[in-house]
Nucleic acid binder design. Sequence first.
DNA 1: GTTGCGTTTATTTTT
DNA 2: TAAACGCAAC
Length: 679
Amino acid sequence: MLDLTTLNKPQLAAVRQIEGALLLLAGAGSGKTRVITYRIAYMILSKEIPPENILAVTFTNKAANEMKERVEDLVGKARTKGMIVSTFHSLCVRILRLEIEKLGYKRNFSIYSSADQVGLIRQIVREIYHGDKKIDSEKILWIISAAKNGLIGHEQFSPKKGDEYELLASKVYPRYRSALKAFNALDFDDIIMLTIELFERFSDILDRWQERFRYIMVDEYQDTNAAQFLLIKLLAAKYRNLCVVGDDDQSIYGWRGADVGNILDFEKDYSGCRLIKLEQNYRSTGNILKAANSVIKNNKQRTGKTLWTDCGAGKLIDMMVAQDDEEEATTVVERIQMERFKNDLSYGDFAVLYRANAQSRAFEEQLRYENIPYLLIGGMEFYERKEVKDSLSYLKAISNPSDEVALLRVINFPRRGIGDGTVIKINQWSVEQGCQLFEAFGRVGQIPGISVATGDLVLGFHAQLIESRQRLQKKGGLAAKVQELFKTLGIEEELYRTIDDPASARRRVENVEQIVNAAAAYEERTANPTLAGFLEKVSLLDDGHYPGMGKKIPGSDAVVLMSLHSSKGLEFPYVFLAGLEEGNLPHSKSIDEGFSIDEERRLCYVGITRARRHLTITRCLYRKKYGKLQERYPSRFLEELPEELLNHQKGAMAAAATEAEADKMASNFFARMQSMLVA
DNA sequence: GTTGCGTTTATTTTT
DNA sequence: TAAACGCAAC
C-alpha cells in the first residue's frame, strides 16, 4: 500500500483531492513532483482508477521520464500500463499520427525544427520580397509563431500598422502554411494547433480522447500558452478532473507566448476549484530562501507565497566581483576545485548558471584548461550541427519524400555535382507543373536547360532515394541499415575532404556515428521501431538526455553549465549565478524594449532557488562584447538582496579569513592535487 | 560548380 | 570575436 505518512498536510490534501478541479501552487523546492507522482499512485492503488484514464502533461521529456519512473517505482511497472506521461508535443503527435488524415495530411508527416522553419521562410521571402533591404527571416518566424501560439490563423492575422515586418509576415504566413502542408510537414506550433483544430472540427474524435483521459494533470502550468490552455480545456471539458500545478513566480516563458494569466485566472476558469499552496521548502537553506523571497517580493502581480524551511540558516551567500569575464570564469573554477577538495564533493555537485548561452564560453575554456569534466546544456544543440542535420535530412527525405526542405538539403550532400543553378531550375519547373519536387527529380529529362550529364546526376540521386526508401521501410535492423546508408553515401569521406582540420573532422564523423548509436538505442527500447518513429523522437527531443546521444556520458561526474531557463526544475548543492549585471540580468532587451522586468526578476529567483547548500553570485566590472571590453554595472536585483545575507569576496583565496590561512589552504590544495595526479 | 577570401554583422531565453 | 554571407576566381 502507498505510504502517505511522509507527506506534509497540504501535500497530503493535494494527493487525496482526485475529483474536480485543483490548483496546486507549488513554490520552488516544495516537493511538487513528489505530490504529482503520489497523486497518480494514489489514483491507481487506492481509487483503482485504470491507468489508461490518467494523463500527465509536462514541458520537457526529462520531466516526463522522471515522473514516469517515479510512479513506476511507487506502484510497479505493470500497474502503470496505459498511463500517459508526456510533453504537450509528444502527446499531440501521438494523437495526430492516428487522426491527421482527417485534416488532409499524411500520417508520415515530418516535424520541422526551427532551423528548417527559418530556411523555408527565407525561401518564401526571396520569392515575394524584391526590395533592397535585407530581411531577417527569423523575425518573421517569430511573428508567425506568436500568432500561431495565440491561435490566430493566417486568415485572421492582421499586421500591426506601420510595422514592415508585421506586413511582410502577413504575406508570408499563408504561403508558409500552404508550403508546410504541401511538404506534409508540421512545425512545433502546428503540432498543438492542428490537434485543437481536429478536436474542434470532429466532436466524435474529441469525445473519444475525453473518454480516454478522465483524469488530467498539467505540470508547470504557468508556462502554458493560449493554444496549450485551450487544448487542456477541451480535453478536460467532459469529466472536469483537472489538476494544474505551477508557480507564478517561476513563469519565465512569456516571450514564447506563455501566459501567466492562465494560472492566475484558473480559479475563475474553473469555478468551484480547490486551491492548495505548497510553501514549505525542502531544498535550500534559510539564507538562500530569504534571498529568494526578498528578490521576488518586488514583483507586483503575484498570488503571494512565502517559502519557508526548518532546515536552518546555512552559509551566507558569496558575492564576487571580477575584473572581466575571463577572471569571473577562473575564479569560479578555482572555487569549484577548492570546495570540492575541502568537502569531498563530486563535480556533479556544482552548477554554473547564466542568462545567455554565450556566457558559457569563458567557463568552458577554463574548465577544459583545468581538465575538469563538464556538461554543457543547451546552446548549439547536437542536432543543430551541420553534419548531423545533413545526415538526418537524408533519413527525413527517405521517410517523407514530400519534405522538400530535407530534399534540398541533401541533394548536393555529399557533393555530387548538382549545383544551385540546376536546383533552381528544377524547383521552378515543379512549381509550374504543379508536381512535387521529388517527382520532378524523376522527370528531369523533360526540364529545359539542364544538360544530359547533369540530368543523369539528378536521376541517380532520385533512384538512390527510392532504393534507400524501399530498404529502410522494411522491418528490422534499423540502426544497421542507417549505418550502411551513411557508408554508401560516403559521408565520412566527404567530411574528411571538406574540413581542413583533421581533429575537427574526426569529431564530426563521431557526431554522425552518434546518430547510428541513437538509432540503435531507439531500436532497443521500442516495441515496433520504424524510421518515422525514430525521426519523431529526434525532432521532439529537448536536450542531450537521450541515451547514447550528445555530450552526456551516463553516470559521468561533471560540472553543469546551463542557462537559467534550462535550470528550472533542477537543483544543485552548489550554485554559481554568473553575470549579475545590468543589461545581462535583467537583459537589455527587456529593459529597453519594454518587456517585463518582472520576468527577468523571476529568472533571477529561479536561479537563486536552484541552490541547496550554497550560492555564489558573481558579476564583472568589464565584459567583452563584440570583441572589445565594455564597462558593466551591478544588476538592480543585487540591491534587492539584504546586505546581512551577503559575504563579499574578492577572489577564491579571499574565502580564507587571513593571509596565513590562505597560504595554508593553497598549499593543502596543491598538495592534494599532486597526490590526485600521482594516483 | 566549387573554393576561398574579404566583408559584415550579430548575442536572450527554447518545446 | 567569430560565424555567416557574398562575390570573384578557379
